[in-house]
Design a protein around this nucleic acid. Structure first.
Lengths: 348, 348
DNA sequence: GTTTGGCACTCCCCCACCACAAGTGCCACC
DNA sequence: GGTGGCACTTGTGGTGGGGGAGTGCCAAAC
């Protein structure tokens, strides 16, 4: 068994140099190239020996016998661990981010701009999501009659996310009935999670069904119409910058599958949820995305959750090729995640 | 000067055959191939003569001296005119469309699903837009205090489009002030276009500025915060199916530019507006998109507007390669446009 | 013992070359 | 006007060799 993880200083330096060279050139790196750029003036032969060790240890691969070496997932993992927390976000990036996000109070707008700026700063796609999960607490609802049997339902949650939805009822309700129903819900359920609210409301409707009650009748109508659905996920998932991937991904078919997956925004949301559903605040770098999503081979996820009171309420990420500027991207994600956290907590 | 447009029956048959063959194979079509598939049993030599005429008349091009012929924009134009209005939408497509769009009353959901189904039915991207232009009439507004100096503004227009926007004020207003302001606007401006409303409101605020008035003060606050902005275009523009283009477009750089343009949804909206802003109901096929958008060379737009009382309130389109199944796409766009029209008129 | 230079070997990449297929234009003939 | 024939053009696909980059290993040097 090779001595994985037990590599010395020289090995580490060379490994880092190989990874960085590969990231910038995209071509397998050979001993000669490395020897030339290395200040320590090591000869190609020495480097070859070290490289052989690194292959044994699982950090490098050779596309074929007489080609240079290419970093493995394990190498990227090592590289990311090693650089994480090192750099701060550059002033230029700070300006760009501040300029883009300045003045956004509205969550959806923030998400949209965040995904955009992430795609600009990285060589991948930017993703920004506000969770509209079962744990999202109600602030208030508002119903507005829009015509015969048609009602606009606006649900505002404590995290500032607004759901508006046009509903069709089975029987007509006038605006007074709707206001009464909204008041009832707001008075009784403010602060409840949407799913709990729905369950309890269903129970109460069931209980009162025997005796005729105007309010309960209105509530039942609204309940049946789905006016309280908190699950309109596609509206709060923003994915931008797919054009970045065109330049990066070689294989055409692979590219098409990838874009197809990214267009299914719910899948992207699931991916982030799977890897970021944690109480940790830190940026997480996931290498080896193909285990969860086969068409994402050779892609990594750099993401961070946003919390309100210890609960995850949103997340943002860059999904890009393994060959990317990790330091730059990690600091950018980290910086924006802080802003996101702040925004959510202001709104809470 | 070549006798453009003065082509006989035989020429037309051959031109149509060339276009259809080119659309299905993607390769320049030669006289021999055509002679073999043509039932009339014309010899390659005859076809060659006809082809030479068609080149003179501007319908065909040759990539190089000894290659087959390729249709020009003019040829596609002819082809589309010739087939338009011929076919009806197939039962299978009807099922797919109905299944996807069934039960959507909410405009945004309809737009999203429409763009999706258009991308499925064609080999291009599907676009669906609800106009939030200056001509959009107010139904009512609703303001809700969300915290210190923060207000959620919900603007509902007659076409059923909802704008919700979180605003930050310069000074705090309580909910009563907000309700008074909303009532004032609803009582005075229902049915006005948003831009007229804003202009008139600005005028009134200016007029009353001298004397202190609580209502006017609230209105001014809201006015300044931009709560009445009707221009949140990105939320009502849906573009889906970019992965379709990966398979179609050869040139990598071109593909990247194209995707980049399609990601700027406002530009897509402008494009539709430019070509569809008309009182005509019919599907419009725009060939030669590169005049307006250079990166869309070799792409066509097949779109239709949706009207309410003679005014354009929405539009939908497919943007796809010149090499596409026109008949299929045109009928699909036409069919969905009718549904869109119906939905808008129900909501009106 | 580590580092280095040397050397034979492997493999990919590029390019020149050639034959071939598909297509054309034109001309003579029906 | 349609057709067959023929010489010419041009992209394509396959082959083969030269060159470059890199490797592994060994023996010598430090």
């Amino acid at each position: 068994m090779p001595n994985v993880g037990q590599i010395g200083l020289r090995e580490r330096e060379i490994l880092t140099a190989i990874i960085e060279t590969y990231i910038s050139t995209g071509e397998p790196v050979g001993s000669r190239t490395l020897s030339r750029q290395n200040k320590d003036g090591l000869s190609p032969a020495t480097i070859r020996n070290v490289m052989a060790d690194l292959v044994d240890a699982g950090f490098l691969d050779q596309p074929h016998t007489s080609a240079g070496r290419v970093p493995t997932a394990q190498a990227y993992r090592y590289y990311v661990d090693q650089i994480s927390g090192k750099a701060v976000v550059s002033p230029a990036d700070q300006d760009l981010i501040a300029g883009t996000l300045q003045g956004t109070v509205d969550i959806q707008e923030f998400l949209q701009r965040t995904s955009h700026v992430l795609s600009l700063l990285s060589s991948g796609v930017g993703v920004a999501i506000a969770n509209t999960g079962p744990r999202n607490a109600l602030d208030h609802v508002y119903f507005s009659r829009q015509g015969d049997k048609k009602v606009l339902a606006v649900v505002v949650t404590r995290s500032g996310v607004v759901h508006d939805r046009m509903m069709r009822l089975e029987e007509d309700l006038n605006q007074t009935d709707l206001d009464t129903a909204a008041n009832y819900i707001n008075d009784n359920f403010r602060g409840w999670t949407i799913s709990n609210l729905k369950a309890e409301l269903g129970r109460r409707i069931e209980q009162e069904r025997s005796e005729y009650d105007r309010l309960m009748n209105s509530l039942e109508e609204l309940y049946k119409s789905g006016a309280l659905a908190a699950d309109e996920p596609a509206r709060n998932i923003f994915v931008e910058g797919v054009s970045n991937l065109v330049a990066k991904e070689e294989d055409r078919e692979h590219l098409r599958d990838l874009l197809r997956t990214l267009e299914e925004k719910e899948r992207v949301a699931e991916l982030l949820a799977a890897y970021l559903d944690t109480r940790q605040e830190a940026v997480r770098v996931v290498i080896g995305l193909e285990e969860a999503v086969p068409e994402m081979r050779n892609f990594v996820l750099i993401g961070a959750p946003a919390h309100v009171g210890g609960e995850m309420r949103g997340s943002l990420a860059v999904i890009g090729p393994t060959r990317m500027d990790y330091q730059h991207t990690i600091t950018a994600v980290s910086y924006i995640a802080q802003l996101f956290d702040k925004l959510l907590n202001e709104n809470a």
